[in-house]
């Protein structure tokens, strides 16, 4: 199924104010992979993600999502294929109720009412939020908002799930709950995160960005074992790979 593939070739991006955000990025993410994009603040993670659904257009280079190159004509198809969950769920939930919000995407796809209803219910059931469907978004807790934000994307049945900082701002329980949920997806998954323990848990592959360039791309465990690389990119080992602070034994 080639439509689950993300391919980026020689991507450059310069913001209108002249900031060079991405330099010569090339990568290929294949079907069913779970990939983390990590890096320091301002390394270009969010900029890269915003190219995946065509919100930003490359200054130079090419992006292919599945069978299509990303162009103005293919944009609607690509936006259906790539489900994007934003960092701040308040930006994503803008309809009066949870149900309306989850139905927003399917309605825009022009699906019939029965099908929309089915999809909304299925998406809400998947994230365990059926009981929230009548609530307005401002009544939800942070964890609930995040789960509903994921449902809004799932209802469009995307092939590729892209998430910016999924565990950001969640309490430990909500974080575990979300990670359990993400583990069950069989989509191609792309996350950015500073939560390196989550990356270790969920992603078999990690791409390290540093000052707009791909610094490393490989199996997560190998990347986290490379202390010099991590230090250079303002990162560190996940806590679970560091020594125990009490007894001093190494993990």
């Amino acid at each position: 199924m080639s439509h689950h593939i993300v391919e980026v070739k020689g991507l450059h991006h310069t913001y209108p104010d002249g900031t060079l955000a991405l330099r010569n990025i090339s990568l290929r993410i294949t079907h069913g992979e779970s990939v983390a994009v990590i890096g320091a603040n301002g390394a270009g993670k969010s900029t890269l993600l915003q190219h995946f659904n065509g919100y930003l257009t490359p200054t130079a280079g090419e992006i292919r999502i599945g069978d299509f190159p990303l162009t103005r004509e293919t944009l609607p198809d690509i936006r259906r294929t790539v489900g994007m969950v934003f960092q701040n769920p308040d930006d994503q939930l803008f309809m009066p109720t949870v149900y309306d919000d989850v139905a927003f995407g399917p309605l825009n796809l022009g699906l019939p009412a029965g099908e929309v209803d089915e999809r909304v219910r299925a998406a809400l059931a998947k994230v365990g939020a059926v009981h929230l469907q009548g609530k307005p978004p401002y009544r939800l807790s942070g964890g609930e908002k995040k789960r509903v934000a994921i449902a809004t994307v799932l209802s469009m049945s995307p092939d590729i799930l892209v998430m910016d900082e999924p565990t950001n701002g969640l309490d430990p329980f909500a974080r575990r709950q979300l990670m359990g949920l993400l583990r069950e997806f069989h989509h191609t998954r792309i996350f950015t995160s500073h939560d390196l323990d989550m990356v270790l848990d969920l992603c078999e592959r990690t791409i390290v960005l540093h000052e707009g360039e791909v610094k490393a791309d490989g199996p997560t465990r190998e990347i986290f074992a490379d202390a010099a690389l991590l230090a250079e990119c303002r990162l560190e080992k996940p806590l679970s790979m560091q020594g125990c602070p009490v007894c001093g034994s190494s993990a």
């Binding site: 930006d91 309306d100 927003f104 309605l107 825009n108 469009m156």
Partner: peptide, 22 residues
């Protein structure tokens, strides 16, 4: 800035100008 992010979220879910309600 928030308005821009919301617009981005709407575009990401296939918004094309018409607002559908059920």
């Amino acid at each position: 800035m928030r308005a821009e992010r919301i617009h981005m979220a709407m575009l990401a879910r296939g918004f094309s100008g018409a607002f559908h309600t059920r």
